[in-house]
Design a protein around this nucleic acid. Structure first.
Lengths: 232, 232
DNA sequence: CGGCTGATTGAATTGTGTCAATCCATGTGG
DNA sequence: CCACATGGATTGACACAATTCAATCAGCCG
């Protein structure tokens, strides 16, 4: 068990983008008092299926996946969360959703009941939350956009582009390196492909000079255009 | 152009489930005054890409799809909306999303600015909206769950089950018929398959007694178990 | 070092996309 | 009322892409 600590907003890398930004100093103080900050190692569970009704959180550092587990134990990824994103929506039942850290991560956890009470009391927070959930909805639809392509190369290219954009370097020229915090199996599952196809597709993209692989998760983009062409 | 009319909440089939249900009589009256009710024929555009920033709406009858169009003109469906669902999220930029009626439908349209002002003023509306958008987010993730399967039969079976559930008959025994308001091309596009594969998969499901087709859109479920097994 | 997990590669099989023909329902105009 | 055109759905044949099974490889930790 990794230790949890009081929340320190001054040091928060997403203080301006997270939903808490909507609050007055006073309200934020009371939110801080009821929340906890916690670190997670890669692979660690952040919110288990049962807890989803009792807790919600903001991811401050790292990356996370939201997934379901069906009866025969197969995991199915349904969302990827980047810093400032929400883990466990308030006001929505999601008893079957697991949240897991994809890389070493950090999050601020809030008791769901108290958090919802604060929503009730502060219209600004509700509005900000609404905006955030709407944003996640748009992202989720982008994800659907990704995977409803007919060919493996298109899906993989689109996934790479999506992480590239999430990493922040919106539209740089030249070569950019970043991390793809998913294992092959996770990519495969998300894209509806087999592990081997993902692997082969990546080597194929590398052979045609679209990307370079660095280790198993590092990606260096050599030709945005080629990727975009495949993803189209 | 089909005529638009003042909103009549007494006759609204989703008055209890739609977001407007959160409002007091007075507030609802003012919402009614700024909104318009309108009918749409199958295939008709409800919200065009550009309008998405100026209007939002509640679907009261029928079914709709939300889609993007990429540069080479290919449409890509990213969500399916059922009655009481939202068309065009307030507070989220979605300039590239088209909304189209899948069947003859009806919706209440609201000017986005005025609607957002009302959100600002009425916490209950914001909370209700938040709940609705969260629900759509869950549904969107279900959709991802649908299509991130590796085999065509699983995807098609899961889509049928999803519409079956949305149609309301949660868990009936025996044979149930309902309508699948998507053309083959739309199903294909959504599931990342070709039209022909969708067609062949349906005949295959029919051959193994899982479903019966009635016309091109009617589905009669003969074996929920078989479908569920494929969708697993 | 040996055992582990994850990634890659190869060869054979199966599934899916593509192209093309046909079918069916619907609607239109003569 | 029929002939015809139209858009969608279905079916077949073939090529190609993806899955499967199996072997190998690379990195990591005890």
């Amino acid at each position: 068990m990794i230790s949890s600590a009081p929340i320190a907003c001054q040091a928060c890398p997403v203080a301006d983008r997270a939903v808490c930004a909507a609050l007055s100093q006073d309200d934020r103080d009371s939110l801080v008092r009821m929340g906890r900050q916690r670190r997670y190692a890669r692979g660690e569970t952040i919110v288990a299926a049962g807890d989803a009704t009792t807790v919600c959180a903001t991811l401050t550092r790292g990356a996370a996946k939201i997934s379901t587990i069906d009866q025969d134990g197969t995991e199915r990824i349904v969302a990827l969360i980047h810093p400032a994103g929400l883990l466990g929506q308030p006001l929505a039942s999601s008893e079957t959703l697991h949240v897991t850290a994809l890389t070493d991560s950090e999050a601020c956890l809030f008791p769901r009941g108290q958090f919802e009470a604060l929503i009730e009391a502060r219209a600004a927070l509700a509005k900000r939350l609404l905006a955030e959930v709407s944003r996640e909805l748009v992202e989720s639809r982008n994800l659907i956009d990704l995977i409803s392509k007919r060919h493996a190369k298109g899906r993989v290219a689109a996934l790479i582009l999506s992480f590239f954009r999430a990493a922040g370097h919106a539209s740089y020229p030249g070569e950019i390196a970043f991390d793809l915090p998913l294992k092959r199996g996770e990519m495969a599952q998300l894209l509806g492909l087999s592990i081997e196809t993902v692997s082969r597709t990546l080597t194929s993209l590398e052979n045609e000079q679209a990307i370079c692989r660095e280790g198993s998760h590092g990606i260096l983009i050599r030709s945005l255009d080629t990727l975009a062409a495949h993803a189209a």
